[in-house]
């Protein structure tokens, strides 16, 4: 059997990939995908911990997270379309009316 720590390390790596993607990618859709990757990393660790604690609740949480992620995707894509309509670009460097 694969030890639980392997899953946890993998989930950490997935989460870190998501964070890196969020920080270095310039296309809004890709940035959004990076966030989904982070959430999936979290899901993996929920399941791994559920197996370790022999608690079913951890696996149920994953469903909730997936549902929320889907709702977020629906709203997020709608917002992205709204931005595209006004700016005709999805590059974050060009979406810069508000100075940082």
């Amino acid at each position: 059997m694969v030890p639980v720590s392997y899953y946890l390390i993998l989930s950490g790596i997935l989460f870190a990939c998501g964070v890196t993607g969020f920080l270095i990618k310039r296309n809004i859709i890709t940035i959004f995908m990076s966030i989904e990757l982070m959430l999936n990393g979290v899901n993996l660790s929920f399941v791994a911990f559920a197996a370790e604690w022999k608690a079913l609740s951890g696996q149920v949480f994953v469903f909730f997270v997936m549902v929320v992620a889907a709702a977020e995707a629906a709203v997020g894509l709608a917002i992205i379309i709204a931005v595209y309509r006004t700016r005709e670009t999805l590059n974050v460097d060009q979406v810069n009316l508000l100075k940082l």
Binding site: I28, F32, I79, I80, L98
Partner: peptide, 12 residues
């Protein structure tokens, strides 16, 4: 344009 931009920033 600034409103949808603020929305997308907030969202991300």
């Amino acid at each position: 344009a600034i409103s949808s931009e603020s929305s997308v920033k907030y969202f991300l």
